[in-house]
Design a protein around this nucleic acid. Structure first.
Length: 489
RNA sequence: CGGGGCGUGGCGCAGCUGGUAGCGCGCUUGCUUUGGGAGCAAGAGGUCCCCGGUUCGAAUCCGGGCGCCCCGACCA
């Protein structure tokens, strides 16, 4: 157990740290108290608990459907990668070298060649497809795998950066540059759709600067989400690899003109980190706030009964049963735990972010009604007891809209335009924001910008900019891009 | 990898001018409660991170390990 983790004594021992008091501690409190995950015995590793894993499975399903719909097939490559494979693409090795974990022994015997535990799978995938791709008729190759990844991180945080994490990595090979570039865009848009339509997280799509791109890529696209403290989270990346790897790994095909060519390649990934984004994007002082479409439990029914009131109790039981059986596709749970008072049940499910709560008690039932409470904004009202189950899909949609609207508002309120470095400094002196700044793409200017205030980074070069960017905030030369400057997780 | 902090029942901590371990929460059982984290009663649970040293005696003092957390440079 983490021993330096000390909770300040507070009025209510059972409450989590307030978000405004200490955001980082609030985050850890939520993850652990909502039973999403816990620290494992090995440094930087975590156990994803059933509730957290159920959330991941929901996200997985939504994304997997999109991946299949766009024509990809799942397959699986091995965890262990020979060192020599990793070394074929120079920039790639260099980029990943500091964080690769190595297997050096099999049983008692030392291996002749060290094996890397995959930090990503481009190398092994290329080495296999070098054997399978011969003709333009073999292209495009559109594959994906769901896998675990190990990267030896110096500093870890539950979900956001763990030594081992889960993700999907898509890998594709194409005849032409244009086709591959379309693929990079298409998959980034899937990530955008996942974030916005499923997770209620508005994101800014764009291109990474050369300093921030994937090791070995020609360019990297990413979606950046804003957490409720104004910090940025890279939530998904899509890389155009050009022919960098296919050349290095000797993948070639005979094209339509009977000439030998190297295919153009892409890769794209989204990891369990996104769960951290959901937590930090929507959570509040009571705990998690889950987007309804991925919430493992979408509605919870809390019965409230009084002892010495057998008729009332029977009516409550009966109503709970009816709601339960009429819930249909809605993921609904009745909290029948005995000996726990309603107040504690409320707190329990609020901490876990369940979007809707239905309180079934004798008081409301006297008029044939139940009370519904919406997690995201705490609003509460009554519904007819015998109609509430049928209304749930609609109520969940409303909860979805409100969750999304609130996140949109945060992003809007915390986005600023900066024309000068002084603007930039002033903005960040107040609070963390997304600052849109004109940028000329020169490395020196990037350093000037990120050095303007503490811990600034260029998140993405916006792809949705309109009009001419103006003059570079750092050097005053004509700018080619609008950069989003923010502090990032 | 640099700086700091901390290792004591499941969790959070106290005990650290050496004398054989305590509090809160949680857990178990029973009764009473139940519309915002319940009350009473009884109970279970500890190689005080590890190794060595000092001492009649070490959770406490000394040395050495290991681990974890937090803050900075690198990263999905």
């Amino acid at each position: 157990m983490p021993t330096g983790y000390t909770r300040r004594p507070m009025a209510d021992e059972k409450a989590i740290t307030r978000k405004s008091e200490d955001f980082d501690r609030w985050y850890t409190d939520v993850v652990r108290r909502a039973e999403l995950a816990d620290y494992a015995p090995v440094r930087g590793c975590m156990v994803i608990r059933p509730y957290g894993y159920a959330l991941w499975e929901r996200i997985q399903r939504a994304l997997d459907d999109m991946i299949k719909r766009t024509g990809h097939e799942n397959m699986y490559f091995p965890l262990l990668i020979p060192e020599s494979f990793l070394q074929k693409e120079a920039e790639h090795v260099e980029g990943f070298a500091p964080e690769v974990a190595w297997v050096t022994h099999g049983g008692q015997r030392e291996l002749e060649e060290r094996l890397a535990i995959r930090p990503t799978s481009e190398t092994i995938i290329c080495s296999m497809f070098a054997e399978w791709i011969h003709s333009y008729r073999d292209l495009p190759v559109l594959i994906n795998q769901w896998a675990n990844i190990v990267r030896w991180e110096k500093r870890t945080r539950l979900f956001l950066r763990t030594t081992e994490f889960l993700w999907q990595e898509g890998h594709t090979f194409h005849e032409t540059r244009a086709e591959a570039e379309e693929e990079v865009d298409r998959m980034l848009d899937c990530y955008r759709e996942l974030a916005e339509e499923w997770l209620c997280l508005p994101v800014i799509p764009g291109r990474k600067t050369d300093a921030e791109k994937f090791a070995g890529a020609e360019y990297t696209l990413a979606i950046e989400a804003m957490m409720s403290d104004g910090w940025a989270l890279q939530a998904g990346t899509s890389h155009f690899l050009g022919q960098n790897f296919t050349r290095a790994y000797g993948i070639s095909f005979t094209d339509r003109d009977n000439a030998q060519q190297h295919p153009y390649q892409t890769s794209w990934g989204l990891s369990t980190r996104i769960i951290g984004g959901v937590i930090m994007g929507h959570g509040d002082d009571a705990g998690l706030v889950l987007p309804p479409r991925v919430a493992p439990v979408q509605a919870v029914v809390v019965p409230v009964v009084r002892s010495g009131d057998p008729e009332g109790t029977a009516a409550v039981d009966e109503t709970c049963r009816r709601i339960e059986s009429a819930a249909g596709e809605v993921r609904l749970r009745v909290d029948r735990r005995d000996g726990i008072r309603p107040g504690e049940k409320y707190a329990h499910w609020e901490l876990r972010g369940v979007p809707l709560r239905i309180t079934v008690g004798a008081r409301d039932l006297a008029t044939g009604r139940v009370t519904v409470t919406r997690r995201v904004d705490g609003e509460s009202w009554t519904e007819p007891a015998d109609g509430v189950a049928a209304r749930l899909p609609e109520l969940l949609e409303e909860a979805h809209r409100r969750t999304r609207a609130r996140a949109d508002r945060t992003l809007g309120e915390r986005s600023v335009e900066a024309r000068t470095l002084d603007d930039l400094r002033r903005a960040f002196a107040e609070r963390p924001v997304f600052a849109n700044v004109p940028f000329c793409e020169r490395r020196a200017c990037e350093e000037t910008i990120t050095g303007a205030a503490h811990a600034l980074t260029i998140r993405v070069l916006r792809r949705d900019r309109s009009g001419e960017p103006g003059r570079c905030i750092a050097c005053g030369e004509p700018a080619s891009e609008v950069a989003v400057v923010a502090r990032a997780y």
